[in-house]
Simulated assay, not measured.
Amino acid sequence: MEEKATPARRKIIHIDMDAFYASVEQRDFPEYRNKPLVVGGLPEGRGGVVATASYEARKFGIRSAMPSKQALKLCPHALFVRPRFAVYKDVSQHIREIFSRYTDLIEPLSLDEAYLDVTEDKLGIGSAIDIAKEIKQAIKNELNLTASAGVSVNKFVAKVASDMQKPDGLTFIGPSAIENFIENLPVEKFYGVGRVTADKMKRMGLFTGADLKKLTEQEIKQHFGKAGSFYYRIVRGIDDRPVQPHRETKSVGAEDTFAYDLTSLEEMYSELEKIALVVHDRLVKHQLKGRTVTIKIKYSDFRQVTRSQSFPAFLNETDTILNTAKNLLQQAFTDTDRVRLLGITLSNFTAPIPVEKAPSTQLTLFNL
C-alpha cells in the first residue's frame, strides 16, 4: 500500500520593528538619540496617550497606551513628540518591499509588524532562519532601523518568539521545542490574552501554558467563551491559520483625538467634517461603498460609545456620511459632555464599483 505524503511544515516568520515610531524619530533627529523619548499625545493640559516609547524611556516603566501625564511622572526628563504618521507609512512601505523580495505571502498586522510564509521562498534560500537574518540586515542597511524576528512552524509561536529577545533579536522555536516552550510560557505572554483575561486566569490558578493544558476544552470554553477553543489548541501548539496576504476589508474609518475637550456641538461638527472628508477619500481610493455609518465618541472620563445607522442603498458621499454622523452625535450628546475623541466608520461594503456595472462579489484587499 502506497504511503500518503506528509504535508510540509510551514515556515513562518513574524517580523516586529523595535519601538518603531520612536526609533524613526531617533534616526531622523540626532538630539533624540540615547534619550528617553515618548511619541504620542503631549502631557500638557489634558494630555494624550503614549503611542510608542523608546527603550531608554521603557526603563522607567513607560509603556504604550499609558496616559502621557503618567509617563511624565515616571520620567520627568523624558522628551515628548507628536507622531508623524506619513513618515512611518513611507518607512513601512519600504519594509514591505523588502519582505516581497522573499515571498508574496505577507500578512501585515500594522505598520510595524507582519507575518511571512516562506515555506517556498522566491530566492530558493530554504532556511527560514537565514531569510529572517537577511531581512533584518536589509532593514538595518537600507533604513537604519532594527527589527526582531520570530521563526517557527505556525503564526502563534512565531509571534510570541519575536518578542523574546528584543531589540534586534531573532528567536527560532523548532517543532521539537514547541511543547516545552508553550508549557513554560506565562499566560500574559500568550498572544491574544489581554490583561483582563490574564488576571482572570491567575485568579483561577492558571499561570503558565502547563496549567492551561490541564483543563478540558469544555472547561476552558465554560470560563472564556468562544476564545476557549483557541486557547485549548494553542496550548498544544496547534495553529493551522494560514498567512493571509489578502484580508477582507470590513470597515474604513478615521478618528481624531483633540488637544482639548470639545464641549459644544458646533466644535464637534467642525471636527466631524474633517474626519468625514478623510473617510470619503479612503473610500474613493479603494473603490468602496457601504451601507452602515458608525460614529465613535470618547469622553473626557474615557467612557466610549458608538452609534450606527444603516441604509438600504450603498453610499460613499461626503455629505451623507457627515450628516448621518452629525445626527448620531446629536442623539448621543448632552450639554454636560466633554468629548476627547471622535471617529467615523463606514462598513457593510459592496464590491468595487466598475463603470456602469453593478457589483456582484465581495472585495478582498489588504488591510487599510
Results as ranks from 00 to 15, higher is better:
2 E>Q: 11
9 R>K: 15
10 R>Q: 11
10 R>Y: 04
15 I>S: 14
15 I>N: 06
19 A>D: 06
25 E>T: 03
26 Q>N: 03
26 Q>K: 10
30 P>D: 01
31 E>M: 11
35 K>S: 05
37 L>K: 05
43 P>G: 07
50 V>T: 05
55 Y>G: 05
57 A>W: 07
59 K>S: 12
59 K>I: 08
69 K>F: 08
69 K>Y: 08
73 K>N: 09
74 L>R: 11
75 C>V: 08
77 H>Y: 15
80 F>S: 06
89 K>A: 10
92 S>F: 12
93 Q>W: 03
94 H>W: 02
96 R>M: 14
99 F>K: 05
101 R>H: 13
102 Y>T: 05
112 D>I: 00
112 D>A: 08
113 E>L: 03
115 Y>A: 04
116 L>G: 12
118 V>Q: 09
123 L>H: 10
124 G>C: 11
132 A>T: 03
134 E>R: 12
135 I>F: 14
139 I>R: 03
143 L>Q: 09
146 T>F: 11
148 S>M: 07
161 A>M: 02
163 D>H: 13
165 Q>G: 00
165 Q>A: 12
166 K>V: 08
166 K>E: 01
166 K>R: 04
171 T>C: 14
172 F>N: 03
174 G>V: 01
175 P>R: 00
175 P>E: 05
175 P>L: 04
179 E>A: 15
180 N>G: 12
182 I>D: 05
185 L>K: 00
187 V>M: 03
188 E>P: 01
192 G>D: 04
195 R>Y: 14
203 R>E: 14
204 M>A: 03
205 G>D: 01
206 L>S: 03
207 F>V: 05
210 A>Y: 12
210 A>H: 13
214 K>R: 15
216 T>S: 15
224 F>L: 09
227 A>W: 09
228 G>V: 04
245 P>E: 00
246 H>K: 12
248 E>A: 13
248 E>D: 02
250 K>S: 01
251 S>N: 07
253 G>S: 08
255 E>G: 15
256 D>W: 00
257 T>D: 01
258 F>H: 02
263 T>C: 10
266 E>N: 13
267 E>R: 01
270 S>L: 11
271 E>R: 14
271 E>C: 07
274 K>T: 10
278 V>Y: 01
279 V>D: 05
286 H>W: 08
287 Q>D: 15
289 K>T: 07
291 R>P: 09
295 I>L: 05
295 I>Q: 02
299 Y>W: 13
300 S>G: 02
302 F>D: 00
302 F>L: 13
303 R>E: 12
315 L>I: 12
323 N>A: 02
325 A>P: 13
327 N>Y: 12
329 L>W: 03
330 Q>K: 15
337 D>T: 01
338 R>H: 15
342 L>W: 00
343 G>Q: 02
343 G>T: 07
343 G>R: 03
351 A>I: 00
352 P>R: 10
352 P>L: 08
352 P>K: 10
354 P>S: 08
355 V>Q: 12
356 E>M: 11
357 K>A: 15
363 L>G: 05
364 T>A: 14
368 L>N: 09
